[in-house]
Amino acid sequence: MPSALPWLGVSAAVLAVDHLTKYWVLTALPEHTAVPVFDSWWNWYRSYNTGAAFSFLSSAGGWQRHVLTFLALAIAALLTRWLTKLPRHAWPPALAYALLIGGALGNAVDRIMRGHVVDFIQWHWRDWYWPAFNLADVAIVTGAAILVLQGIFRRG
């Protein structure tokens, strides 16, 4: 059985970089104020999300913090188990699991420590604004995309 340790190192790196950027955001950026990176499409925008993706459940009354934290920890544990069972040559799903684990833990730690997730990347085009997100979210979306693409190309 191959070692999952190098892949868990990727998860740890995602978690560390996510929280280093959030530390920067919390110490350097004003709340709810756009700081342009590229005027036409990208801002730093410090905001908080008590819900899930796209602020789903953000006004649910507080119970969602515990449920979302539990789900993130359970999913990270399940993916870690799956990661340990992958054959050595199966690097695409291993990378995907590692990114998903790191991202899930990054946002779970936020919920445990702060009661909400810190978001700070805001993309926009004209008057249309994508909801703010963070590097843990990027890792989750990238990991999910790898799994989807691997499934598509495996069938084709």
Rank of each mutant, 00 (worst) to 15 (best):
M1T: 10
M1A: 09
S3L: 04
S3R: 14
A4Y: 03
W7T: 02
L8G: 01
G9T: 11
V10T: 10
V10H: 06
A12H: 05
A13M: 05
A13C: 07
V14F: 03
A16P: 03
A16I: 14
D18W: 11
H19L: 01
H19G: 01
H19C: 04
H19S: 05
L20G: 12
L20C: 07
L20V: 14
Y23C: 00
V25L: 06
T27F: 00
T27I: 03
T27L: 04
A28T: 10
L29Y: 05
E31H: 08
E31T: 04
H32Y: 13
T33I: 02
A34P: 07
V35D: 01
P36S: 01
P36D: 03
F38T: 05
D39A: 06
S40R: 14
S40G: 01
S40P: 02
W41Y: 04
W41K: 02
W41Q: 05
N43Y: 06
N43G: 00
S47H: 00
Y48W: 13
Y48G: 00
Y48S: 00
T50I: 01
G51D: 03
G51T: 09
G51F: 02
F54R: 12
F54V: 13
S55W: 04
S55G: 09
S55E: 04
F56L: 15
L57N: 02
S58R: 11
S59H: 15
A60M: 05
G61S: 11
W63V: 07
W63L: 12
W63Y: 11
Q64D: 08
R65V: 12
R65I: 07
R65G: 06
H66P: 00
V67N: 05
V67G: 01
L68G: 02
L68D: 02
A72E: 04
A76I: 04
A77G: 06
T80W: 00
L83W: 05
L83M: 12
T84P: 04
P87K: 15
R88P: 07
H89N: 01
P92Y: 01
P92K: 12
P93N: 10
A94K: 15
A94C: 06
A94Q: 08
A94L: 04
Y97V: 04
L100I: 15
I101M: 06
I101P: 03
G102C: 07
G106P: 12
N107R: 14
A108Q: 13
A108G: 10
V109W: 15
V109S: 00
V109A: 13
V109F: 14
D110M: 12
I112N: 09
M113H: 09
R114P: 00
G115T: 12
V118Y: 11
W123Q: 02
R126G: 04
R126W: 13
R126K: 13
D127E: 13
Y129C: 01
W130N: 07
W130D: 03
N134T: 14
N134P: 12
L135N: 08
L135I: 14
L135V: 14
L135G: 06
L135H: 11
A136S: 14
A136K: 12
D137K: 13
I140N: 06
I140G: 03
T142C: 15
T142P: 04
G143R: 11
A144D: 03
L147G: 07
V148C: 11
V148P: 10
L149G: 08
L149V: 15
G151N: 14
I152D: 08
I152C: 05
F153R: 15
F153W: 15
G156L: 14
G156R: 15
